[in-house]
Amino acid sequence: MDVVNEILGNSSKESNKYKPVTVKKHLELEYDLGTLLAVDPNDFNIDLYSKNPNEYFLNLARDNTQLLLNKLWELPTERVEEAVMVKLPPPKTALPRMKPVPKPRPLTKWQKFAKEKGIQKKKKPKLSWDDQLKKWVPLYGFKKAKAEKEKNWVLEVPQNADPNEDQFNKKLVAKTENVSKNDLQRLRNIAKNKNIKVPRFGTSNPEVSSAKDLKAAITIAKASTASLGKFQDKLHKEVEAKGVSAITPGASRKRKMTPLEPENKLNMNIVESILNKKPRLDVDKAVAKQLQTNTFVENSQQKQGTSKGSQKIKNKTNKKPKGSKGHRAGKKGGGRKRR
């Protein structure tokens, strides 16, 4: 029995040596272990607080930290390189993001088409063997450009081509055209994704433009005569391009139906606009007129200076002469009657 008492005594001594890890609280704390957060809804002990606020806060914080850590120690642990790690649950407190959730990148026109048709991107090798140069040439980059230069030191003039045409320059132009076309398509994709309307322009270089562009070019060119293409013959298997009315001469003159207003009202508007016509002030015309009068007055003054009293100006206001107001000068001398 002595032994048992001894052991019990030892254990009680052992336990007395350490301070307890348990804390009593009136209300349970709210924990969010994912953010290492504890909220203590208990009221403050005003007596203890007023005695020594800082010590009270210290003890309160100690108790609450003890409770929080007790909860943490209950969680499953794992050993990672001699350190005991505890797996935290996902945080409960919802904190706002700094930036909105990213939207999926909108597809380009080509990507959309490829997806519809199930076209998959083929991976091209970065290097390929060039039989002519007997070396590995990269797909793109500066070594590619150098290899191209070495390879294309001479260019064949194709049959039916103008022998004086610079084939190197032609190739360069085609390349730059292609680059700018790609950039244009990139901008078009951006505009489409942002719902910006881009005005249609004519056609690009025929070397790089698509069949659709060429079709549009034909339609526009045919309408670009003095009679708006009325007397142009149809080409063999010609199809008129669609959606080019805005840039085709004469095509946009088609009267558009306006269902918002009834027809009689529209017609009345036209009649009223004619009957209640007000003189419009054309600034350019007025300025030109003023300038003209100024020069006229100057000229007349000069004339007056040179030939004294030879002729008097009757009409000083410089108004357009009207009939039956002035005196007829009458015929000066005879002559043939002009009809």
Binding site: Y18, K19, V21, N54, T65, Q66
Partner: peptide, 21 residues
């Protein structure tokens, strides 16, 4: 009141440590 403490983990005889601040 904002207070900031350093946590000292002491032996407690049980699995959880005794927290001192």
């Amino acid at each position: 009141c904002l207070r900031s403490y350093k946590v000292l983990l002491k032996k407690s005889g049980v699995r959880e440590p005794r927290v001192e601040l």
